[in-house]
Design a protein around this nucleic acid. Structure first.
Lengths: 238, 238
DNA sequence: ACCGAGCCTTGATTTGCATCAAGGCACGCG
DNA sequence: CGCGTGCCTTGATGCAAATCAAGGCTCGGT
């Protein structure tokens, strides 16, 4: 990659720094250290459906979302895809590959036109050695990912789709637990949402239909209105 | 906790250090640093079925298995249990609670009489600040846990129990892929194994029966003989 | 040795979701 | 404009595993 003229280069760095600052990983880093991190970063643009990385590939580093969304998924030997999670700004992911795990354990694909910051592995490792506090943040971030995975694991096995969808809906609009009807705009296609929840799109569709029939929600395209938040909220606790 | 007489105390420290050394986390640590870690540790004995920690509790630190086994599981709102994973020596777990996640995200219970080393959180964090290399090992360990969780997530959704069991059996005895019949001694009850594989004990029992009927294995109590390793191995790749 | 509790097995039935199938709707492109 | 492709919905059917049920086995305790 060629380096841009000084002026543009520093602009780019500034933009990267600004995004990094949003991330929990770097929110408490000193400006000087942040600049150091930003130096080891590059930007990568992705079209909808473009692969960011594939399972088994050697990793170049980890990523911080700038715009768009990236889906992490695995495919079974017989070719079916299972979404593990979906990341959006300002989340970071693939930190897994910083240490012992050198290859990506799953695939990463853009769900829409996206930009991600690539944090170079080698340089970042050096930085950690000089900035131990940074490593605690990395641990924190991975802990969160791990915690979410544990939750997903339980949800997918132990709770049925009605409950998971109710939970998801209420998480999208915490305010709706009270009476007020809220309007949610889906950020992804229902197909992808179905994948996130671990079911097929048909099943998701039917579940929406059931909720609609019970007067819990109204659905119109990508917009969902929560009519009876209380009842919906009760649903998820099973 | 009272401190033992000097002689016994240092003996105890030595025993702890020896166990810590087994763990991937500390295998490359200098003896001096290892001693520092060991200082911040205590030992905890558990009876079969005794809780090491409960979901939501504030954590005291993380753990390294010395003897026995500990099951990490969650319970659904309606009371059903879902095993997340099972740890044995020399594995470490609950590193999650070192950083931002302060409370245990799941329950930990001894499956048999066990001893675990408790690594005190506060002291260990200090140590990390002085020994950044240590944090890379922590990251490595958590990465592995994360990778395994991702795999479990896919397996439980995307592969049926036959395949998972075949996979598990072959992992227990890598040698069996070749012709030689191998005898596996189950380390846990079949009930727990079922839980690990994400099914009920009835389903596991039936699957064993099917394998038995096909002449793939012979089962006698807690001992399983792999008769046709090749065929079993083929099973898992679906 | 006996008894009871928990574990394991096997059978019958249920069920939650996937799969297969078909039709409607919307959007981008020629 | 019209057409196709992909997304969404709804219906019919299939299936893996859960659940319910019952009997046998094992092992630790009195």
């Amino acid at each position: 990659m060629q380096s841009a003229p000084a002026g543009l280069g520093s602009l780019r760095q500034a933009a990267i720094s600004a995004t990094l600052r949003q991330s929990r990983l770097f929110s408490s880093l000193s400006p000087a250290d942040l600049a150091l991190v930003a130096e080891g970063c590059s930007l990568r643009g992705l079209q909808r459906g473009e692969m960011l990385f594939r399972e088994g590939e050697k990793s170049e580093g980890f990523y911080v979302m700038q715009t768009g969304s990236v889906s992490i998924y695995k495919v079974t030997p017989d070719g079916r895809e299972q979404i593990i999670c979906v990341f959006r700004p300002p989340e970071s992911f693939a930190e897994v590959t910083l240490a012992t795990v050198e290859t990506y354990p799953a695939n990463g694909m853009a769900l829409e036109p996206s930009q991600v910051i690539v944090v170079n592995k080698a340089r970042f490792r050096d930085l950690i050695r000089r900035q131990p506090e940074l490593s605690l943040h990395m641990l924190g971030s991975m802990s969160l990912h791990l915690k979410h995975l544990v939750q997903s694991l339980q949800d997918i096995k132990g709770r049925q789709i009605e409950h998971r969808l109710a939970e998801w809906l209420m998480q999208q609009s915490p305010a709706a637990a009270l009476g007020c009807p809220v309007e949610i705009q889906l950020q992804v296609s229902k197909k992808v949402l179905a994948g996130q929840l671990g079911v097929t799109s048909e099943t998701l569709s039917r579940t929406f239909a059931r909720f609609r029939a019970e007067g819990l929600i109204q659905v119109k395209g990508a917009s969902i209105r929560i009519v009876d938040g209380a009842k919906l909220s009760a649903y998820r606790n099973v």
